[in-house]
Every structure is written in structure tokens, then in C-alpha cells.
Design a binder for these strands. Structure first.
Length: 640
RNA sequence: GCUGGCAUAGCUCAGUAGGUAGAGCGAUGAACUCGUAAUUCAUAGGUCGCCGGUUCAAUUCCGGCUGCCAGCUCCA
């Protein structure tokens, strides 16, 4: 008989061929590498028996699907081990997730880290036992009966919801699990795995349901891949902004102040100031005007804006001021709109681009707070663009370009866009949505940003573009958001007088480029692992003297550099130069000026860069030219 | 908010089978005046997160609260 291969060729095969025997027929290497198959587009096990004329594709360990199958089989192996060690545990579901898998168990006593070690050992044993993993088809009611007999009530619950008549089970030794498959054919193929953590998770993700115990793990085909992955986790730990924030004295939060409220320490504040200064300059260059608005506003304002109706869950309780209710702001928009309404606007005034570093407060459930990335008080780099329908396309285009330039300056080169379109429940007429969505799409195409469509993912008040940036170790962070708002102009009855003398409703766009300064700072810390580029570093230059004899010279240097606007700190302590260098190095300071007898005599500076390289005996002006250059050009390099 | 874990000196952490605690780093002082990642010696520093209970005695055991961590849920 004949089967078809993906490249269009046909292969003659003997009787009773399987996916594996086909792979073997092609090459030994392919057979060794094979994990599963795809027959007529359906994933199957490697021992699946083929029929004449089948289209067969071999899934190998190099395919993404192959890795998913390995991880899924590892999840089963883990469940197998758990059932052997904890027979009272009920199995539920065990899917593949990014970089690994998890399995949820219903068990009274939560797993401890020691349990994880035991389970891992048991998994190794089961792997060494080389147990065959075999698929079985069964009628639904029979399967329900089987699982009920075993006490696996979650499984029977799942089966009873499956539409098909038959379900598939996978059996390995004394363990059997409901599963669509495919799976590896033997436990011995699962070698390189690690159980990572245990946590609670609700049955079916619903917080009204029972809390189950979830074990997370990872699995790989090669030991080197597992090691690499574990190393990546280590690397992420090292970059953790909460750890670096403490070590580098950047920010802090206090039990006494409250959860999710951030205090910026002097060094972190210096970074923030550099970011804010840059932000302001760029906004002014890009024809924005900068606004300042209060932190609280009367209930009536939030009633008009609709926040009290639609956003109150995220707002803090009102405070009573002379019998009036005031709310602390969760957003800046109502204030900007009030400013818009201070006078009659003409079409000649538009577009208006109003930006504010506005500090807002939103209630977040205590469990979701996380360092700088999820907080209760934060400063948005907010702006509102108010324009006519003819202007929206060019306005969106300009915002996108602006955003890209900002990200480039901060050292993020990889940006991805997501356009979210009209959801089921929405305000504003169809034509407006269409026009706005078109302008978003056109602008993003023009910008050259790679993007995806999130159909129906927009807010009820308008479509949006979100931008995700990729950091130094490949993680994506959602930062920029550009959102149309068809709701607020209506609610506040915003108007302008068009050229025909008629009142018209302007378009309004909210946008935040960095998102919030807190979150952005957190991402920035992780991106650079605390080693900021020269232009952002809290201390750019540290002046280290060899001995007291150079004190006067050093003081002059510091004065000169400060006069030029650089952030420079002295270290004149009576310590060995190695000690001072070590400290400056741990502070991740870009430049150290090492000043000894030689430098004083020659009227020069010697620079030790953060990367350990040296630039010795430079004339001051020569050095000044270099730092001026790398500072102004926002270079990520330490030297020109 | 939910489940589980954790909270000891400025930081990182040890310890007390219930009898009020210790290291390293850091800080301070002194000596050394020193050339590219840790000089030496000395000193100070803790109501053992907060509140309550059990006990002759609680940092230790129990309960509540606050905060942090992992995850779930949430993120119009």
C-alpha cells in the first residue's frame, strides 16, 4: 500500500504500517527523533496504524507540537507518580502551558516542597521502568463508570460533557487517564523534567469552586535544554526589579504606608527625573501641551464621566469635604475635558494634544499587587488628543511614530502591535467604529510595526492599539496603549465649531506611551538588569581618589562635571582603590574616574568603565566630549 | 479577595525541643595614604512585624491583623 508524505511524494509500505515504521522507512534518525504523527491532519500516536492513501506527517522532537506532547506526557507521568504516593488525591486536568505544564489535584493536605522532590523521584522511577503508554477507546458511559469506580469524580464530570460517543484513555501501568492525546509511547522517553512550584488554583478557574493544588513543571527533550531553561529562570530572578530596587536603593514600599504604594528613593528618583525630563522635552517637540490637574474631584464629575457607574469597583471610597463627596482620581480624562470646555473651540484649534504626568489611584485586589508592575498609586504618562474626523489618521500615525522613537531611545528595539476591535457591547455608531478602526490599521501598517488583530477585544467605548515591547531576555511587556473614546465626548457634550459654522463632536484619543512611570521603571530595571545606560543612570560618574593628595584636584573635577549637568558623586574615603572600585561596580555606575598622582601631574583623568575597560590619561575636554556625546545620543554603549 | 508559604539587626540569613538571641556584609571609631572587584582592629546596633490568648515564663505554641512571596481570580 501507499501513503502520502508532506513533500508530495508517495511511499510504498509493507502491511500494517504505523507512523513509526514510516519514519523508520525514511531514515533511522527520523525514527529516533519521532514523537507522534499527524495523519490526514489529525494528531495521532506513533504506534497508530495507517491505512492506504493516508497523508502522514511525522512530528519530531524539533517540532513545537512534539515538545507539547512531551510536556503533556510528563504531566501524566507526574499524575501517575502523585497517585502512587498519594492515592487519596483526585486527578483533574493537566494541560501544557508555555515552557512547561501543570496538573491540578484535589487533595486535602497541600503539597510541600519536600513532596515535590518525592514526586520527582517517583517520576524518575516510572521513567526508568520503561512503561508503555497506550491509547484505548471507550464508550462514554463505560468510561464514566470506570472513573466513578476509581473515585475520579472530576474525570467523570469532564467526560459527561464531551459530545462524542467515544472517549480516549491513556494507560501506563497502573495509571489511566482521560486524554485526547497523542502521547509518547513509553515513559522512558521522559527524561529531562523538573517540578517547579505548587500553588492553589480553582477548579475550572472559578473562585466559587473548590481550590485545588496545582503543581507546575517543565520538561525538555535534551538535558542541555532543561539546564538552559533553568538558567533562564535564574537570570530572570537576578533581574527581578524588586531585588535590584532594594540593592540599588531605587524604590521602596512600606508596611506603614500601605500596600501597592511606592516611595521613590533618591537614586530611583534621579532615574525618574531623567525619564520625565526626556518625556517633557519630547512631548513639547512633538507639539503637545503639558497640563497639571488635581488629584481629587467631586462625585458629580465622576457621575458625568460614567466612572461611578462603570469603574467604581476600582475607585476608592469618597471623602467628605464640607458635605460634598470627593473621589481620588483613577483617571485624568475628566479634568482634561473640563479644560477643553473652558471655551468654545474652533476647528482651527484642533488637533489639541494635551499631556500630563498624572498620578492616579486605583483599587487593586491585594493578591494582584506586584512590585512596581502592579500597584495602587501610579503616574501615567497620559495624553488626550482631541481632533476632527479628518485628522484622526495622521494623529494616530504620529502617536505611533512618537511611541516607536521613545522606545528606541530607551533601548527597546522590538515592538509588536495588537489592534482590538469592536466588542459586542459598545457605544458609538458603526460608522465611527469603522472609521476609527481603519485609521488604526492604516497607521500601524504605515509604521511597519508587526501586528495582530484582536477581534472584539476593544473597550466598549472605542477600538485601540496596544504595543508590547520585548526586553533583553525576550519577555514581552504591554506598555503603550492608544484608545479611541466615543463615550466621554458624548457624556461631556464636547463640541467644536466647524468651518461650516455648525457644532460638531470631536474625536478623542487616550494614549499612554510608557504606561505608568512605576511599571515602566520596573521593566527598565529588568531590561538593563540595573545597569542603566549612561543617560539614565542615577549616578553617571563616580570620582575615586587614590589618596588624600588628590583631594583638591578631585573636588575641582566634580565641580566642573556638576556644572556641565552630569550626575557625579565623589568617593574620597580612606580606602584602597580596589575597594572603592568594587563598590562603584556593585552600584553599576557607568564611569569611574580614577585619580592618582599621575592624573594630577598631567592634568588628566583616567576612566574605568562599568565593563572593566580603561581609558587612561585623557585630557578633560576629550573626556567631556565623549560623555556629552553618549549622554545626548542616549547611547547604550559606555564609550563613543 | 481566595489557597499555601513567609515575617529575627540597615541588608542576607542562622537560632531558640518555651527560660528575652547570633554570623557575614553594612554603619561608626581608630590605624594604614594605599593604582583598578573586599586592609586591619575595635564599637554600636534587635520590645524577634502588630494585637490578643495559653503558660510561672512566648521571639518560639494558638488565634486575629498587617505586610511580603508563589499561584488562582481580576485587570470597564
Amino acid at each position: 500500500m501507499k501513503i502520502n508524505l508532506p513533500d508530495g511524494s508517495k511511499l510504498d509500505v509493507d502491511n500494517n504500517p504505523t507512523v513509526y515504521s514510516v519514519a523508520e522507512g525514511i531514515s533511522k534518525g527520523l525514527a529516533r527523533d519521532s514523537v507522534a504523527g499527524e495523519v490526514n491532519g489529525k494528531p495521532v500516536d506513533i504506534y497508530y496504524e495507517l491505512n492506504d492513501g493516508d497523508n502522514v506527517k511525522i512530528i519530531t522532537s524539533k517540532d513545537k507540537k512534539g515538545l507539547e506532547i512531551l510536556r503533556h506526557s510528563t504531566a501524566h507521568l507526574m499524575a501517575h507518580a502523585v497517585k502512587r504516593l498519594f492515592p487519596e488525591a483526585k486527578v483533574t486536568i493537566g494541560p501544557v502551558v508555555e515552557d512547561g505544564f501543570y496538573y491540578d489535584f484535589d487533595i486535602e493536605k497541600p503539597f510541600t516542597p519536600e513532596d515535590l522532590e518525592l514526586i520527582e523521584k517517583e517520576m524518575k522511577k516510572l521513567s526508568d521502568a520503561k512503561i508503555d503508554i497506550r491509547r484505548k477507546e471507550m464508550e462514554k458511559d463505560k468510561a464514566v463508570k470506570l472513573f466513578n469506580e476509581m473515585g475520579e469524580t472530576y474525570k467523570s464530570e469532564i467526560i459527561s460533557e464531551i459530545e462524542e460517543e467515544n472517549v480516549s484513555l491513556y494507560e501506563q501501568g497502573d495509571f489511566i487517564d482521560l486524554c485526547r492525546g497523542p502521547h509518547l509511547d513509553n515513559t522512558s522517553k521522559i527524561k529531562h523534567f523538573k517540578l517547579l512550584s505548587v500553588a492553589g488554583a480553582y477548579w475550572r478557574g472559578d473562585e466559587r469552586n473548590k481550590m485545588l493544588q496545582r503543581i507546575y513543571g517543565t520538561a525538555w527533550f535534551k538535558k542541555s535544554e532543561l539546564d538552559e531553561y533553568l538558567q533562564r529562570l535564574e537570570e530572570a530572578k537576578k533581574r527581578d526589579h524588586r531585588k535590584l530596587g532594594k540593592e540599588l536603593e531605587l524604590f521602596s514600599s512600606f508596611d506603614e504606608v500601605g500596600s501597592g504604594l511606592i516611595c521613590w528613593l533618591p537614586k530611583g528618583s534621579k532615574v525618574r527625573l531623567a525619564i520625565e525630563n526626556f518625556w517633557r522635552e519630547e512631548h513639547i517637540k512633538n507639539d503637545y501641551e503639558i497640563l497639571y490637574t488635581p488629584h481629587i474631584g467631586k462625585a458629580n464629575l465622576w457621575q458625568t464621566s460614567g466612572h461611578l457607574d462603570f469603574y467604581s469597583e476600582n475607585m476608592y471610597s469618597p471623602m467628605d469635604i464640607e458635605g460634598q463627596e470627593y473621589y481620588i482620581k483613577p483617571m485624568n480624562c475628566p479634568f482634561h475635558i473640563m479644560i477643553y470646555k473652558t471655551k468654545t473651540r474652533s476647528y482651527r484649534d484642533l488637533p489639541l494634544r494635551w499631556a500630563e504626568l498624572g498620578t492616579v489611584y486605583r483599587y487593586e485586589r491585594s493578591g494582584v499587587l506586584h512590585g512596581l508592575l502592579r500597584v495602587r498609586g501610579f503616574t501615567q504618562d497620559d495624553a488626550h488628543i482631541i481632533c476632527t474626523d479628518k485628522q484622526i489618521e495622521s494623529e494616530i500615525s504620529e502617536v505611533l511614530d512618537f511611541s516607536l522613537n521613545i522606545w528606541k531611545d530607551f533601548g527597546f528595539s522590538s515592538v509588536k502591535g495588537y489592534i482590538a476591535t469592536k466588542p459586542e457591547k459598545s457605544v458609538g455608531d458603526e460608522a465611527m467604529w469603522q472609521k476609527a478602526t481603519d485609521s488604526l490599521t492604516k497607521a500601524i501598517v504605515k509604521s511597519g510595526i508587526d501586528y495582530e488583530l484582536d477581534e472584539g477585544g476593544g473597550a466598549f467605548y472605542g477600538p485601540k492599539i496596544d504595543l508590547k515591547v520585548k526586553d533583553a531576555i525576550g519577555r514581552e511587556w504591554q506598555m503603550t496603549t492608544i484608545q479611541f473614546d466615543f463615550n466621554l465626548p458624548e457624556r461631556f457634550d464636547m463640541n467644536y465649531i466647524d468651518s461650516d459654522g455648525k457644532e460638531k463632536r470631536p474625536f478623542m484619543v487616550h494614549r499612554a506611551l510608557l504606561g505608568s512611570l512605576e511599571r515602566f521603571f520596573g521593566v527598565l530595571v529588568e531590561h538593563y538588569a540595573g545597569a542603566f545606560p549612561f543617560w539614565i543612570a542615577p549616578t553617571q560618574i563616580k570620582v575615586l581618589n587614590i589618596s588624600d593628595d588628590q583631594l583638591d584636584y578631585c573636588k575641582q573635577l566634580v565641580k566642573k562635571l556638576k556644572g556641565k549637568g552630569f550626575r557625579v558623586e565623589p568617593d574620597y574615603r580612606n580606602e584602597k582603590i580596589g575597594y572603592k572600585i568594587r563598590e562603584a561596580q556593585l552600584e553599576k555606575i557607568p564611569h569611574m574616574l580614577i585619580i592618582g598622582k599621575e592624573e594630577v601631574e598631567n592634568n588628566t583623568v583616567s576612566v574605568r568603565l562599568r565593563d572593566g575597560k580603561n581609558k587612561n590619561n585623557l585630557d578633560f575636554n576629550e573626556y567631556f566630549d565623549v560623555i556629552k556625546y553618549i549622554d545626548e545620543n542616549k547611547s547604550v554603549n559606555l564609550w563613543r
